[in-house]
Design a protein around this nucleic acid. Structure first.
Length: 109
DNA sequence: AAGGTGACTAACA
DNA sequence: ATGTTAGCCACCT
């Protein structure tokens, strides 16, 4: 039974430690398709049952929270991250939440 | 089975 | 610098 890209993505996301974040692009690379960042977002957006999947630890490569989901809003995402000790900044200019990738990206520091 | 859809990004203007 | 554009690609219908 061959593991699909979706399955790999889910496994990788589940593996992100609490208090850390990863970008869509990084996940795409680990899942074996380095240019599929957009597909990763699409997949996360369409997962039926998000329970057990720390979807909120996935953000854009620049550190912005780009969620558009009505069920699990970007507000929810900010709160879940803060609960894990991640500092989330409101970028008034861009009107988006932002987290410092240098501090919280799983591959940094 | 072919065409549409994004929780993306790097590259432009 | 800041906003826009255009490839990208796995999934869904």
């Amino acid at each position: 039974m061959k593991r699909t890209f979706t399955q790999k993505v889910i496994d990788i996301v589940k593996r992100i430690p609490s208090g850390k974040v990863m970008s869509y692009a990084q996940i795409a690379v680990l899942a074996g398709s380095e240019r599929a960042a957009r597909a990763v977002g699409y997949i996360l957006h369409n997962i039926r049952d998000l329970s057990g999947i720390p979807w909120y630890r996935v953000i854009s490569s620049k550190g912005y929270i780009t969620t558009t989901c009505k069920e699990h809003t970007h507000i929810t995402q900010k709160q879940l991250l803060e609960k894990e000790g991640v500092e989330v900044i409101w970028d008034e200019k861009k009107r988006m939440y932002w987290v410092d990738m240098e501090r919280y990206n799983i591959f940094k520091l």
